[in-house]
Structures are given as C-alpha cells and as structure tokens.
Amino acid sequence: MTRKLLVLSLLLLAFMSTFSTATFAAGSEEDKTSFIMHHVKDSHEWHFATFGHTHVTLPLPVIIYSGDRGLEFFSSSDFQNHETHAFGEEFAHEGYYIDEHDHLGRVDGASFIDLSITKNVVMMFLVMILLASLALSAANHYKKNGAVAPKGAAALIEPIVIFVRDEIAKNSIGPKYKKFVPYLITLFLFIWFGNLLGLLPGAANMTGNIAVTMVLAVLTFIITNVNGNKDYWKHVFATPGVPIPMLLIIVPVEIIGLFTKPFALMVRLFVAITAGHIVILGFIALAFIFESYSIGIASTLMVTFINIIELLVATIQAYVFTLFSAMYIGGAVAEHAHDDHH
C-alpha cells in the first residue's frame, strides 16, 4: 500500500513537474516566485489554476462607493483581458480600473471607497457559514434533547466550548468571565477554522491578512476598554505607588500600552499565518526555480512536513489570540485587592 502510494506520488510529481515547466519555465526568475506574494495577498478574483492558456478563476463582485456616483456594482472580469486574465490600467471599465498589483483605481483620480467582495471576503463568508452551521446544529442538539451527552456536531463543538470557557476564560478573566465566554468562543473558532481552511490548496490566506486580524484586535480592544473598571483606568492615568514626577513618564507609557496590546495581537496572527504560507509556497517554488526532480521530491517532503507544523501553528495561534484577548479583558475587569499589586 505504502509503496503504491509512493509510486503514485512520484508519477504525479513527475507529471506536475513537466506540466509546471510548461507554464512557469517560460517566464523569468521573478515570475517563478511571484505567485507566492500573489497568493498571500488579497485579490479581486479567485484564481485556482492555470492550464496552459486556460485560467480557472472565480470572478468576484467589485463594489465601489463614491461621493459623486454612489454605490456601483461590477464583476472583476469587467476589468481584465479575457484572454490572459491580466488586470491593467488599459482595461478600464466605466471609469475604474484594477492595476497589475490588484489595486482598484479611478481614471479621473477622484476619491472612492473599495467595498469589493474580494477573495478573502469570500473565504471569510465560507468560514462563517461553516462555523455557523456547525454551531447552530450543535445548539439544536441541546434544544432537542436537553442537557444530555453530546452527539454529532455537538460532540465536536462542545469540548472546544468547554476548553475556551474553563481553560481560557475562567483562568484568565476571573470571577466575571461568564459575560465574555461567547465572544471568546466565536473568536477562537473563527480564527481556528480560518487558519485550517487557509491551509487547503487553492484557499485564501484570510487569517493571514492584516485587515482581518486588525478588525479582530480592534474588537478585543473595544471590549477590553468598554469593560475597564475604576482600578484599570486608575492604573493607566494615576498609577498607584508611583511618585508624581514619575507619572509624567509612566502615564504616556501606560497609554501607549493600551494600544500596543491589540497591535501585538494583530501583528502576531498576521505574521504567523502569512509566514507559514510563504514558507510552504517557497518550498514549492524551489522546484520551479531549479527545474530538478530531486529538488522537487525533497521540497515536496519539506512541504508535507511544514504543512503538519502549520496545522499545529493554526491551533496555537487561535489559542494564543483568544488567550491574550482573555488576559487583556481579565486585566480590565479584575478587582485589585492591593493598590501596589500589579
């Protein structure tokens, strides 16, 4: 069985190599690695594969809001060459264009807001639909059967819910944890599912996009500061046990600290997931750069290995983001017994 699989994968690899040579070898060195950054970044269309000159893509809606023209809807295929599927300023459509770097632009240079359903937005919706259907069918189980042992989707979701509630919320927030458990569960599952689905071939690097991590970090920031109690704000603006002249230095540091926490959340998740994708794609690119079977086999093995590590990273990063969110919230709602205790 193992030998059969090995032979099969080698054949597949040989086939892929010849086939890739046809598609990639024609280009320059830069073209051979440009797909890495193209994958990691967001895009106005979902590109799955290229067979010779045939592009397998999913055109996505382009939604634009501008002060003078209001809300407008287009398809991403309106802005590209139908043969090569290339974007460019020369393929402008109704005054808008998408340039080679996937930037939306306006021919007359006036201001507008790009609200397009990009690749990552679609990916996000897929994650949300999957998460919502699992969570709702799990909840349905309890509605139907009452408080009995979990089954089906409930058996999948329940251990995670209990883990987030007991290990993350209860431990990090303290006695007032109950209010924040639903947010933390949603956060954990959204990031975790996003990380895992992002590892699938052809999937988008959604949780490795800075806009996504920024929104999540901002939500944690808002929840933390809205729930901050007297002790928390006193700590920031009149740090106890510090002489008054020192407050001139401490207070700005504390205020900056309020913002560095969500900033760290945002950057950590973005970097961890994006770096993982870049490493995997980098190993794949090696085969195209060297155009060698042995390098192809070696890099495939490395890609498999790193994919396994990425599964771990996906879980760890979801855990870390949720844990730190819980700790920040915990710091804001905690009752300090002693003023000098930090």
Binding site: I63, S116, M124, M128, L136, E158, V161, V212
Partner: peptide, 28 residues
Amino acid sequence: PGSGLIFWQLFGFLGLLFILIKFAWKPM
C-alpha cells in the same frame, strides 16, 4: 489593510457574533 475587507470583516464578524451568541452559545 484593504477598506473592503475591513468593512466586510467588521460587519460579517459582528453578524456572526450576534447570531452565534443568540442561537448557539447561549443555549449551549
């Protein structure tokens, strides 16, 4: 960060949060 992604992520996530809290996490 892309403006469209921020917009959809913010409202999508808030919508998801609302639905899941109301219909999934609270009963669960």
